[in-house]
């Protein structure tokens, strides 16, 4: 098992290098000069020249990349071109925010999506199935930004129940933290819940036809035991892979959700950084996201092995 994990980590290294080169060149291809943006409204030529020098914008692209890579390897992701804050501390302060949002959304998606999937598979063709499918379809079809604004108008402005935007750290004020996060987590979680529901349902439908389920029933096991222990355990495998992949979608969705609810997280950080051509921040954020994504996939693979004994022997 340890060997397996080690091998996976080693494979991740070239992937990360490729990602960093890709992002580096891609954003340099973006039109727009960050130094012009940084120089401010007055665009003083002297300031522009000094800034170009300072941020090594005059060097060839390859050298710029190598400088950056050298700094990263020594643990320095650079400073934000916009505010002078070190990128690493910027990321460290934004990451918990987005993780909280992601965890709450995932939790919501799991709690709603998986039971709904199981239920609609077991009660296939009944009104429960129809209702669950209808909700899933709406969850997938309603755009995040629309749902977010509608919720703000209804829940915050008309009913005055929850704050419309903002963020508080969970460790400072847990109640306020949760109240500000409920709506964003719901908005971000709906599409996830819908996807999970549909996949759980189809996986369950496949498994419920299987011989071993019929055998289990024939043995006289209780319906609940058959469904949860025999059927669901086998149906859950593709759902686990999916959840890991959905993590990427979650980060992408967080970009929009954080904009709407003005949550100072990762998503908002990257959008603002791209618009300000804050290269160092964009690079740092993408690198961290790539690491996170690879890590989640690794976790999924490990979970796979734990959940499916057959894979264990084939190790």
């Amino acid at each position: 098992m340890l060997l397996f994990i080690l091998r996976r980590i080693l494979i991740a290294v070239p992937t990360l290098i490729l990602v960093s080169i890709f992002v580096f060149t891609l954003q340099k291809l973006l039109p727009g000069d960050p130094i012009l943006v940084m120089a401010g409204e007055d665009r003083d030529p002297e300031v522009i020249a000094l800034l170009r020098e300072k941020y090594r914008m005059n060097e060839p692209l390859v050298m710029q990349y190598l400088y950056w890579a050298r700094d990263v390897l020594s643990g320095d992701l650079g400073v934000s071109l916009r505010t002078n804050e070190p990128v690493l501390s910027l990321i460290a302060s934004k990451l918990p925010v987005t993780i909280q949002l992601a965890v709450m959304s995932m939790l919501f998606a799991f709690l709603v999506g998986i039971p709904a999937g199981i239920l609609s598979a077991v009660r296939r063709g009944t009104w429960i199935d129809w209702l669950a499918n209808l909700l899933a379809l709406s969850g997938l079809s309603i755009p995040n930004f629309w749902l977010g604004i509608m919720l703000i108008l209804l829940v915050s402005v008309n009913l005055g129940w929850l704050p419309a935007s903002g963020y508080e750290s969970f460790w400072i004020d847990p109640v306020k933290s949760l109240t500000t996060m409920i709506m964003p987590a719901f908005v971000l979680g709906t599409a996830l819940a819908a996807t999970l529901m549909r996949h759980t349902r189809s996986a369950m439908l496949g498994v419920l036809q299987a011989d071993y389920v019929r055998t289990a029933r024939a043995k006289g096991l209780r319906g609940r035991t058959v469904i949860l222990k025999h059927a669901f355990r086998n149906a859950v495998l593709p759902v686990v892979t999916l959840s890991a992949l959905l993590f990427g979608e979650l980060l992408a969705g967080a970009v929009l959700t954080e904009q709407i609810f003005t949550i100072p997280g990762f998503g908002k950080l990257i959008v603002d950084a791209v618009f300000n051509r804050d290269y160092a921040v964009v690079q740092g954020v993408v690198l961290c996201t790539a690491v996170g994504f690879i890590f989640m996939n690794l976790v999924a693979d490990v979970l796979y092995v734990i959940l499916n004994p057959r894979l264990r022997t084939s190790q």
């Binding site: 704050p163 935007s165 903002g166 709407i260 003005t262």
Partner: peptide, 18 residues
């Protein structure tokens, strides 16, 4: 000072008392 770029959301925050 709370930066809220979306004008609709900014006004919603004022209306809700935030």
């Amino acid at each position: 000072f709370l930066p809220i770029p979306d004008t609709t959301v900014r006004l919603a925050n004022l209306r809700s008392g935030d």
